[in-house]
Design a protein around this nucleic acid. Structure first.
Length: 106
DNA sequence: CTAATGACGATTC
DNA sequence: CGAATCGCCATTA
């Protein structure tokens, strides 16, 4: 049996995403640290897997890569959201992670 | 059991 | 900044 209960892991990931305020973002890695510290195991890729399967209902555009970029397939959709809620962007179009980063609570 | 996969991350060129 | 490469880790084939 795996040490981690998949449902519990997914639920905690989604909870973290819901905590991110408008105009701010967090990263897959940051969420992985928080959830990993609580449940043990997992990693950025596992967080990504959860978002792909159950991320629909939550503000998924507030979760970006460590460098502030997003998969090409989501850039168009996310772009509008960022302009709406005033998320700091860089000339390249990706999020200015240095200014917008939000650290989820442990 | 081994190989491939993926909404990742850090490093290097 | 962009592309290539390697490491990571659970899930799937």
């Amino acid at each position: 049996m795996g040490r981690i209960d998949p449902e519990e892991y997914a639920e905690m990931v989604l909870t973290c995403v819901e905590q991110v305020p408008r105009g701010r973002v967090t990263t897959y890695g940051a969420i992985a640290e928080v959830v990993g510290a609580r449940l043990g195991g997992g990693g950025p890729r596992q967080v990504g897997a959860i978002m792909a399967s159950y991320g629909g209902p939550v503000p998924w555009w507030r979760v970006v890569r460590a460098d502030g970029s997003l998969p090409p397939s989501h850039q168009g959709e996310a772009r509008q959201r960022y302009l709406e809620e005033g998320t700091p962007l860089r000339p390249t179009g990706s999020v200015d992670i240095r200014r917008a980063f939000w650290r989820p609570a442990v």
